[in-house]
Amino acid sequence: MKDEIIIAGFGGQGVLSMGKILAYAALENDLEVTWMPSYGPEQRGGTANVTVILSDEPISSPVLDTFDTAVILNQQSLDKFESKVKPGGVLIYDPYGIHHAPTRTDIKVVPVDAMEATIEMGQAKSYNMILLGALLKMRPDVPVEAVVRGLKKALPERHHHLIPANEEAIRKGMSLVKE
């Protein structure tokens, strides 16, 4: 098993955190994992992305040109990464704020109304967890239980009371993926 994932959006949308939580979940599930962020000023606005690789074998390059799975949170990232999804791969995106939807037909394109769901749920901060839920539905690389254990490691203790809300958002995201 190997999943080469790109998560991309605006700085502040929780792109790096989503990757980090996934990486901790992989650690909990005894998988090999690398987490390679774009770093620097883009964390304070502009685009941010992170490459997460999960594998049951040692991982060579943490830097990739093509991906099995893409989770896309804004138009710039869609423009940049749609062509980088391997044929047969999965592209998950939130249509909110997207003017030019993905056009590829050789990959599985999965729209997830995550922004709408966060507004409905009244918890804007779990936006990224809804998308993580959609990712886990499409790519069951790690069980949700491992993600919850991963959350405990990824979040400082003072935020642990938010874990149930995060889990709820993850499950919401899973339910938003239409078969």
């Binding site: 990486a23 090999e32 994992v33 690398t34 987490w35 390679m36 962020p37 770093y39 991982i59 943490p62």
Partner: peptide, 10 residues
Amino acid sequence: DGIVGQMMEK
């Protein structure tokens, strides 16, 4: 270098 400094792994 910045890659091995910034990346997370086990």
